[in-house]
């Protein structure tokens, strides 16, 4: 037993890295096709995250801030927090569901109050900053041009969302149409940023697989010629796959394109 513990302690880093690599491959296997390997690890992830969350919630929050003061610190009134918390669970009882509504109502009220405050702190400064001066600023006429662009975009977008009357007048209709285009450009920017974000996460995993797992665990001497050969073979194999795919498109695709034609 001691020997196993010792071995685990000595190789803990390698074990963690190998587990990480296995999990990464399992989750990314969905990109090839839906499979049971992926589903298994998806459930492992959910279980681990939930278990870890419960442990941390007890260690860092419930234990030191609720249980210990109530049980050992003489702060008995914390028992009411448990009473209020358990009221949520009455939502599962048809007969006593009203009890859960009391606590839900309380939190809805608190949240609504907070939203008022949030509106004042978050959005009022936005309204203020929308009143831009058209006079040349520190950057000369560039500031005027910037302010003009801002006003054009602001009024166009606002006109698009003005639903009190039909956009019949040509000027209003054209402005609203321009507003829609500007909004589309905005959504395009958000989508572009989303692509960047998702790629960054993929880069992170690839970096782990390549540098932490492959180079440190699988190929200890990464500068060896073998590694370069392996990379070269993988690239050649991929190019082969592409050429093969172009030369012989899948039956399903050719059938569907045939139908279109």
């Amino acid at each position: 037993m001691t020997e196993i513990a010792g071995w685990l302690a000595r190789n803990s880093t390698s074990i963690i890295v190998w587990c990480g690599a296995l999990c990464t491959f399992a989750i990314y296997s969905i990109l090839y096709a839906e499979n049971k390997f992926y589903r298994l690890f998806e459930h492992v992830y959910i279980g681990l995250a939930s278990g870890y969350g419960v442990y941390i919630a007890w260690r860092d929050v419930l234990g030191p801030k609720w249980w210990i003061p109530m049980r050992f610190g003489g702060e008995w009134y914390w028992i009411f927090a448990a009473v209020a918390g358990s009221m949520f669970y009455f939502m599962y009882s048809q007969k006593h569901v009203w009890i859960s509504r009391v606590i839900f109502g309380f939190f809805m009220g608190v949240t609504a109050g907070g939203m008022f405050r949030g509106f004042y702190e978050v959005y009022f400064p936005q309204i203020g900053s929308s009143m831009k001066s058209l006079a040349p600023g520190a950057n000369g006429w560039w500031d005027t041009a910037n302010a003009l662009v801002f006003y054009v975009l602001l009024f166009s977008a606002m006109t698009y969302f003005f639903f009190s009357f039909e956009h019949k007048h040509p000027a209003v209709a054209a402005t609203a149409r321009a507003g829609r285009w500007f909004l589309m450009i905005g959504f395009g920017a958000i989508f572009g940023a989303t692509v960047m974000g998702r790629l960054t996460l993929l880069i992170g995993r690839l970096n782990f697989l390549l540098n932490d797992w492959c180079l440190q665990e699988v190929v200890p001497d990464w500068k060896s010629i073998y590694f370069k050969i392996i990379v070269g073979l993988v690239v050649v194999a991929l190019i082969g796959l592409i050429v093969n795919s172009i030369a012989r498109p899948k039956q399903k695709n050719s059938t569907s394109s045939g139908t279109e034609e």
Partner: peptide, 8 residues
């Protein structure tokens, strides 16, 4: 190229 497999 339009019909290329997304996995590639």
């Amino acid at each position: 190229l339009q019909k290329i497999d997304r996995r590639i």
